[in-house]
Amino acid sequence: MLETASEFAITATGLTKKFGSLVAVDQVDLKVPKGRIYGFLGPNGSGKSTTIRMLCGLLTPTAGEACVLGKDTRREAESIKQLIGYMTQKFSLYDDLSVLENLQFVSEIYTLKRSYRSLRVGELLEEFNLKPQSRQRAGTLSGGQKQRLALAAATLHKPPLLFLDEPTSAVDPQNRRDFWEKLFDLAEQGTTILVSTHYMDEATRCHQLAILDAGRKVADGSPQDLSEGISFRVIEVEAAEPNKARGCLSTVDGVISITQLGMRLRVLIPKKQRDALAKVRGSLEREGIEASATEVRPDLEDVFVAVTGAENQPEFPQ
């Protein structure tokens, strides 16, 4: 029993949080393996932040249990705090302190040994490429610099577990790439990382992820497993007049969703619908629409649409 428990940094069963009549998180079970990057993918308001906050011990679950690094989040919240690093959605270091002063403050709060403090702060400045800005006030940093500073602060005491709540929502693509390089480095060194996002490309990079929708976990697994395990076919239609094609395709039996990407349309049809490709082609031909249709591999976005959007698409009754 203990052996299996220690493989996971986080385990949760039936985790639920209600705010009044609103159920923010509904019966979520989680198993986050150690040393991996685990993603929470979901739209705004799907319960990502609330779940993270419960795991940190900031919110008390209405029901359910969570165990973080072998500690119960209800009873041992304070000792969990020594072991985790937390990066908030909004920049939460002090705008009116310099980069150096912010890191020094955090090193003092975590009561690092005096001799080690300045060493570690210097190390982080180097590692996160913040040396030129060390005397600059944090409030005047760019989005990418702020984010690097926040991650530096969260990892200052070398926690075995990191919680990152939508860490890249305010930075440009280049900085996001660099940021993810950093995360892989950290995971390599054995840090478990739980990161929430609503970017598909980021979700694809996680070792494993859970898709949250309206407070419920609707799917989990590795990005590849999720794509393969999907119970839908994806047919890509390339048309000269995508709008016309769209109108035509919406009448085809069983179509769950149509997403336009430039001149292409991605059509989701349940696997149980037979001869889906033939039906799509036939329908386009009957209408005299010039288009080519091919079946393609589902990507994470298709998975996301399939597991979250299915019941929210009234125009395509199942």
Binding site: I84, Y86, S92, V106
Partner: peptide, 14 residues
Amino acid sequence: ERGNLELLINTPVR
């Protein structure tokens, strides 16, 4: 208001 507290309450400070 500035969100600093959210960081602080995640640290060991009492």
